[in-house]
Structure formats: C-alpha cells, structure tokens
C-alpha cells in the first residue's frame, strides 16, 4: 500500500495498555500518528474524538484493556459505549462513524504496541482522507 503523507491517526490509549513512553512510540511510528496516553480508557469523552477530527485527524483509534481487565472495573466498557455514541454523531454529520474505532487488547497484544498501532494506521489509510479535510480545502480554494 502506498503511504500517503496526508493520513493522520490519533490514538488514545489506556496507560495500562502500553508501557512504552508515548514519545518513543511516536518516534517509531513517524509523523502520521499522534499518541495520547490517558489514565483510563473510561476517561475518554466523546469530545476528545470530535476535537481530534476537528484538528485534522482522518481516524481516531482507542486502545482499551480486554473485557474484565480494567483497573477501574468498567472503564473499558464505558469507553466502548462512548465511542459507539460518537460514531452515531460522526455518521449524522457526514464524516463517517467508522473513523472512530475501539480495539480491545489482550495481554499478548499489549506487548506489541508498534504492531497494534501499525494495524490501526493501515485501517485509517483504507478509510482515506477525512471529508472535513476536503471541505476545508474547497473553502480555501474559493
């Protein structure tokens, strides 16, 4: 697959998912990925995803702990419900709900952050550029 420099993926992840420093991971992944560790995935507000899309992301990925593994008991379940709700909002405004997705990580997957993020980036590339970007480009041409 051809690497398009325009692809921008914002990744939010629970700090219990990946132990690596986000800056080290960002350096490995390049400029296409912006990583934001959060204290618990349940901390994620729909506003975070909407603001990331507004800032020019093509997709937003949330990595959460596996079912039943949340340190705060139900943070991951709450997070997936919030993403589902945000997907409906994104569908309604025409950006496409599939641009926000959740990935539950098993213990073995948590040890491979680069692989997991690369998969999410490949998914984002398949989705193509965000309609928000093309809309702003058209506005700039006018």
């Amino acid at each position: 697959m051809r690497i398009t420099p325009e692809t921008k993926l914002t990744v939010f992840y629970c700090q219990n998912c990946f132990k690596e420093d986000s800056r080290i991971l960002e350096a490995q992944m390049g400029s296409e990925v912006a990583l934001y560790p959060i204290a618990c995935s349940g901390r994620l507000d729909p506003l975070f995803i909407l603001r990331a899309m507004e800032q020019g992301s093509d997709a937003v990925c949330l990595f959460v702990c596996d079912e039943g593994m949340c340190r705060y008991f139900e943070g991951n379940r709450r997070a997936s419900k919030r993403v589902a709700y945000t997907r409906t909002l994104l569908d309604e405004i025409g950006i496409g709900g599939d641009r926000a997705f959740v990935r539950f990580l098993t213990e073995s997957e948590k040890a491979k952050p680069v692989k997991m993020i690369a998969e999410a980036l490949a998914n984002a590339r398949k989705l193509g550029p965000s309609p928000l970007k093309s809309a702003s480009a058209k506005r700039r041409k006018k």
């Binding site: 700090q15 420093d21 986000s22 800056r23 560790p37 959060i38 204290a39 618990c40 901390r43 705060y72």
Partner: peptide, 11 residues
C-alpha cells in the same frame, strides 16, 4: 469520580 496518576506526568 476517581483520581489516577497522569500518564503524561510520569513520562
């Protein structure tokens, strides 16, 4: 409401 260590802080 819970409090948790900020991941950015420890980095």
């Amino acid at each position: 409401i819970n409090k948790a260590l900020s991941p950015s802080y420890s980095q």
